[in-house]
């Protein structure tokens, strides 16, 4: 569903992403790990078409992001670290706008409330202004948006940083739910614990390179922290 082929992006002589090859199937949850500046966010930007690759292609559902920017966005949902919403509108109104922008202007209030409910947002919060929402509640609106636009792929950028443990757990549950529906998830994160908990595959990124991939049993048994530190230290020494 998400595919990077020799994806390269440089900013003024610094390489942000270097010949990245990545393929994420429907139902897979891919955890992209790495320190600040490793190129995680750039990768997500490339999939969103927010930045143009120097070489290589980013594909969503088999479509080149650069060639069909609007079509690929129809398949994507994006949840950044801080889900930004219009402060003066309610969660419901925000969801209505974003889904309408996504081309789903046929939903009624009941449908939208249904999505918010599925995402775990309490009914009383639906019509409250977003300015009163906690970070976790905003994230739920983001999930509801993914549900409503029937996204085939989900791009997450540090989604759990700053969430309290129970909210973080709740979020993992939601991801698992989406994964069961066949959504491909790319999650850039620092949270090794959460990655191990929810991801089906994990990639370690450093200076734009994908330095290590773990999946299946290897991932389940691995001491992720040790591997992470080893690679990062190794990279520093190298």
């Amino acid at each position: 569903m998400l595919e990077a082929i020799d994806l390269t992006k440089t900013y003024d002589n610094t390489v942000a992403v270097d010949r990245l090859n990545l393929k994420i199937q429907p139902g897979e949850v891919y955890g992209l790990l790495g320190p600040n500046g490793a190129g995680k966010t750039t990768t997500i930007n490339l999939f969103l078409g927010f930045t143009e690759p120097n070489t290589g292609t980013a594909k969503v559902g088999g479509l080149d992001v650069q060639v069909a920017p609007l079509e690929t966005k129809r398949l994507l949902a994006y949840i950044p670290e801080q889900v930004m919403l219009y402060q003066n509108l309610s969660g419901l109104e925000n969801l209505a706008y974003f889904t309408a922008l996504a081309g789903h202007d046929h939903y009624g209030d009941t449908d939208l409330r249904g999505f918010l409910g599925q995402a775990g947002l309490q009914a009383e919060a639906h019509t409250r202004r977003v300015s009163t929402y906690s970070k976790g509640m905003r994230q739920k609106v983001g999930i509801a948006l993914a549900l409503a636009k029937e996204a085939k792929a989900l791009l997450l950028d540090e989604p759990t940083s700053g969430l309290d443990p129970s909210a973080s757990f709740e979020f993992s549950e939601l991801l698992r739910g989406l994964s069961k529906r066949g959504v491909a998830v790319l999650m850039a994160t620092h949270d090794l614990f959460r990655a191990k908990d929810v991801a089906t595959r994990v990639g370690l990124m450093h200076s734009g390179h994908l330095v290590r991939e773990l999946s299946g049993d290897e991932l389940r048994d691995a001491d992720l922290q040790a591997i992470y530190l080893e690679h990062m230290r190794g990279a520093v020494l190298a």
């Binding site: 930004m84 974003f98 922008l101």
Partner: peptide
């Protein structure tokens, strides 16, 4: 500035 634009442009809109 707030990053809201990224949310909006993640939708199929120019």
């Amino acid at each position: 500035e707030t990053g809201l634009l990224r949310m909006v442009l993640a939708q199929p809109v120019r």
